[in-house]
Write a protein that binds this DNA or RNA. Structure first.
Lengths: 201, 201
DNA sequence: CGTAAGTGTGACTGACCTGTAACTATCGGG
DNA sequence: CCCGATAGTTACAGGTCAGTCACACTTACG
């Protein structure tokens, strides 16, 4: 409807600004007044586009999830028909997140901060994380892991643990070993899978 | 100064009540008015004992950390001179936490919710988690792990990841496999340690 | 009895919060 | 040139927040 690049719409500015401010101060740590002021707009525009602050939060989360989906799709393109390479790429991507996004996963942080069960953002978060885990398991299966679901669960726990630990124990904490541990888990599972297949075959 | 059991002091009631309410609603989700009302006391008593809400938060965290230290000490008593047994006990303890404390680790949740770097609770949390990790590494070393620090970091990431995942992916998510994965990691590391020692010896 | 420490009470401040209302300004398409 | 949609302005409602104050009460101890 509008050329992007010339001048972003108030709606987009609100979402982008809110995402950044929520990340920095937490959901409850920033008010809508501060958001609209930083976005260079006003409160009425915010409430016309999003019915409530909670809906704005959900929209921000949706944007983050979409961005993560893109990253995942790019990974599949980079390693076509190479699930083992995809697993390695995923590990590298997560390791990169740990180094650059020091504050952890926004979806996890939001889920932990929001204690209301009926919050619209919760469903978005749960859906995304479930799909992420399923995709990971599929890649593990394609890579020939002995127990693909077990490997996916292991990698998932390591990822979440590393990103949480990065915030508390710092860069030199356990998260520094994430890549090494994850790669070892993948190698062991694939080796066992090959051995198992050989036994059968 | 006062017999415990007859009637708890207002101070203790405030800490216990605040801990429970913070857990249920989050730090920013509950006000001091609600805390003192639930504790059967008043705001002035709270502010006479703790200079601010932030200090009360830090005191609650200190209490939780002390409780966790007790659990750890009990573990050492249950498996005297048996570091391998202690590792198994630790895994079982964490697995039990995952099942019973569905909302995750209060220290982690608080650290994620509090975005102010200078918050008095942050130092308490970082200190406790660092000590926990060091203790874990010492037990791994005593148990004869090939790379004790690596094993400790692995177990730590699995623990944090499992407890976070429990909140988002539910009981049937990756956290259901925590015990199995953790025990396998311990077994593999100890086996490699024994093999390495045999090579040397 | 006297005193002192700890505790309870309710009113209060000033700031901040989400959300609404009424009105005005801009701008593109018919 | 007007219409309708989008956006901006100002003001405010109705709450909640942390934190303070003066004052009264209970309890224990000498």
């Amino acid at each position: 409807m509008e050329e992007p690049g010339t001048k972003s719409s108030p709606r987009d500015r609100i979402v982008d600004t809110a995402t950044a401010l929520f990340r920095k101060h937490g959901i409850r740590g920033i008010g809508v007044d501060a958001i609209v002021e930083a976005a260079g707009t006003n409160k009425m525009t915010l409430y016309r586009h999003f019915g409530s602050k909670d809906e704005l939060v959900a929209e921000c989360i949706r944007g983050q999830a979409a961005h993560a989906d893109e990253k995942w799709a790019k990974l599949a393109c980079e390693y076509p028909n190479d699930p083992v390479g995809q697993l390695g790429g995923w590990i590298k991507m997560v390791a990169n997140y740990i180094c650059t996004e020091v504050h952890g996963c926004d979806l996890v942080n939001t889920a932990i901060e929001l204690h209301e069960d009926e919050h619209p953002a919760r469903a978005v978060i749960a859906e995304f994380k479930t799909v992420h885990l399923r995709k990971l398991a599929e890649v593990c299966r394609a890579a020939g892991a002995a127990d693909p679901e077990l490997l996916a669960n292991t990698l998932y726990m390591l990822m979440e643990g590393a990103r949480v630990s990065r915030q508390i124990n710092g860069a030199d904490g356990p998260s520094a070993r994430f890549m090494r541990v994850a790669e070892a888990a993948v190698a062991a599972s694939i080796a066992a899978g090959v051995a198992g297949a050989a036994e059968v075959g």
